[in-house]
């Protein structure tokens, strides 16, 4: 479904991704871990099309197509969803209206009829129930005045309504207490399906206790330096990231 080859990207003059290679197939859940500043979030944003980053080398293929040619909204309509690390507030725009506009933009792109308010409400109510969310959040402006946990849950709700083919969850676990973490994990698990791939970006291993990944990758210094199964995540939890940074420093020396 997704294939990233030798991806280099910079922000301004600063090179952040230095040759990322990653293959994600339908139905798989990939966890990407790594220390702060290793490029995890940048990778997530580059896949979604954020133009703060410039791709200088390499390519991203999505369903066999060159993803880098598509605008962010085209990528979204083609089924790529990014759950933001810091969901953005949009004052005065109700969550419901926002979601319906998004869903209909995507449906229109796929040649489906737009959903009217009644059908849409039915769908949303069902998903809200599934995630154990408070329905009152729907009427409130997008993310405005939401607690950290509510914002993250709202991202998961959006994912559940928009039903992407590839979902990227960027530090969806950060800042959550244990109850919120469990709720968010349950939402993610409910969305797992053989047609859907997920990339879970996280700093800690704790989300992975609830969302079991098929593959774990470790990023350092803008590259994936190690890949494995969920055992790798446990190892990282025990050892921390210090050894990685030593390795990265060594690699740096070899380069220069």
């Amino acid at each position: 479904m997704l294939e990233i080859r030798n991806l280099h990207a910079k922000a301004g003059e600063k090179l952040i991704l230095r040759g990322v290679n990653l293959k994600v197939g339908a139905g798989e859940v990939h966890a990407i871990m790594g220390p702060n500043g290793s490029g995890k979030s940048t990778l997530a944003q580059v896949i979604a099309g954020r133009d703060l980053y410039e791709v200088t080398e390499g390519e991203i293929l999505y369903e066999g197509r060159n993803l880098l040619e598509l605008s962010p909204e085209e990528r979204a309509r083609e089924g790529i969803f990014l759950a933001f690390q810091y969901p953005v507030e949009i004052p005065g725009v109700s969550n419901l209206y926002f979601l319906r506009t998004a869903l209909n933009a995507i449906r229109k792109h796929r040649g489906l009829e737009e959903l009217d308010v009644m059908d849409f409400m039915e769908l949303v109510r069902e998903r809200v129930k599934l995630l154990g969310m408070n329905e009152a959040l729907l009427e409130r402006p997008v993310n405005e005045g939401f607690s950290g946990g509510e914002k993250k849950r709202n991202e998961i709700l959006q994912m559940a309504v928009l039903e992407p083919r590839l979902a990227i969850l960027d530090e969806t676990d950060s800042g959550l207490d244990i109850d919120a973490l469990k709720a968010v994990a349950a939402g993610i698990n409910a969305m797992r399906s053989p047609e859907r791939a997920m990339i879970v970006v996280t700093h800690y291993q704790r989300l992975l206790e609830y969302v079991e990944p098929d593959f774990v990758h470790v990023m350092a210094d803008g590259r994936i330096v190690r890949s494995g199964d969920k055992e790798l995540a446990r190892e990282l939890e025990r050892q921390g990231y210090a050894w990685l940074e030593e390795e990265a420093a060594l690699a740096q020396e070899n380069r220069s």
Partner: peptide, 10 residues
């Protein structure tokens, strides 16, 4: 804000 909307297909 604009990117957030665009990422949702808007």
């Amino acid at each position: 804000q604009i990117f957030y909307c665009r990422q949702r297909g808007i």
